[in-house]
Nucleic acid binder design. Sequence first.
DNA 1: CGCGCGATTGAAGCGACTCAACGGCAGTGG
DNA 2: CCACTGCCGTTGAGTCGCTTCAATCGCGCG
Lengths: 260, 260
Amino acid sequence: MNSIPMRELHPGAVPEMLALLGVCVDPGQKLPDMPLAERRIRAGQSLFFEGAPATSIYVVRAGTFKAFHTAEDGYEQVFGFARRGDLLGCDALSGDCHLMGTVALEDASVYVVALPDFYALAQSLPAFHRGVMRAVSGAMVDLTQLADMMAAVASEVRLARFLVHLSRRMSIGGQPSTFLHLLMTRRDIGSYLGVAHETISRSFAALAALRLVKVNQREVEILDLAGLQGFAQGTRTPVKASFGTAVAGLRPGRVLALAA
Amino acid sequence: MNSIPMRELHPGAVPEMLALLGVCVDPGQKLPDMPLAERRIRAGQSLFFEGAPATSIYVVRAGTFKAFHTAEDGYEQVFGFARRGDLLGCDALSGDCHLMGTVALEDASVYVVALPDFYALAQSLPAFHRGVMRAVSGAMVDLTQLADMMAAVASEVRLARFLVHLSRRMSIGGQPSTFLHLLMTRRDIGSYLGVAHETISRSFAALAALRLVKVNQREVEILDLAGLQGFAQGTRTPVKASFGTAVAGLRPGRVLALAA
DNA sequence: CGCGCGATTGAAGCGACTCAACGGCAGTGG
DNA sequence: CCACTGCCGTTGAGTCGCTTCAATCGCGCG
């Protein structure tokens, strides 16, 4: 139950972690050769539980995680998906325990940085500090974009924003970005976007009917990224519905059954 | 246009800023007496604009700010409200420019910390670093709670969560926490919670009809905080609607017109 | 092989959006 | 001093999309 699944020490892993955090450092610079604990998580396993005391922060090395919160009545609210280079556990720095749990959606690996080490490392290594601030700021941007997705009125627009978001995150990793392997269930996406999971299914069908994507279970291919981005622009009632300046024509307010 | 409204140097303001960030420091410890720029913002004025290059981060000393993003079609999405002790401008640390603008809802005052100074200060003063991490983590928690509010199905529940959230934030400042002076408009709240501003009006009326709050324009008095919190628990379909364990009885799924 | 879970699709009800009108308040300028 | 003009807040009525409940199908795993 409380046995740590797997843990090994990586001497000299600091450079890799800095690379994960997206900071460049002079090749000749002396780096503290602090050994870092690595922890491997199997798909479906939990990295840390909601309510657990904050002991460390984590840098995702491989795999994908889902961060969520479980209400008293059992409803599970998903707050985000973390991938390589993301920071996990920062929500506990302002309190004393984690406000959300984390499970791996696929086999994963993280660097575990104990809180004292974390502060010491940031103190002795400015590059690490900048990397952490970068990552934390990125997490805030992600949460902001989550609010932006949930702010969209139409569920198809929410899903379109989600797919564009995923595609963008993939592309900065250098990958194709038009083929998406969704590791989360429809229910997870629905919780993330604030709609029922059946609505996610229907929205996928709607986007597919518009020839914007091709969907087969969890395999999603973006057929028209520009069109999808235009579609994702749809917002709540603008100040003055300014058609005429529309980018390409695909800018639906509510009309989209015409393509069925 | 580009003239900074007001700016003065505060020698020895570092201790106050540390207090704002919620860190305790030994009274005898030597603090770098770095002069800090203070900037005063009048109500309705902007602290920084969306898209502006990131030059500094800001610590709110007094007043209230609204952070928002304006879409191409003019729709304004509100992402949060910042108060004393909050950090502003962190969203730009991962990119190079601000992703959202900030306006003061009342006369306000902030400490301006230029980015180089920011990193230098965090380097030389661990307490500042911890304070920043605390504040940043708190901002992430706020964004998480925003997602939580928007996840509620019923608009009255969203508003109830918002009021509970505000009350909690007030109470940590030591203030009464049952009287709320809303500085934002109904439209701002609606944008924040993802509903139309008319719905906010109606939801206020509904909560007032349930005797949970008393509302008069922007003056809100919480009559039954426990009841409001119970009401705010209402979520999307739980795994198994478990009545019987309800706290007090006020746990509505959809029924609330019965008290009109 | 059967069980359970995820995904899809259908049908029905209702709640929020939208458009609209009205009263109140503040700031402005004649 | 007082119209005038926005903006904010409230309330009403109608439409429509999402939720909810339900059934079905496919797939992986014990």
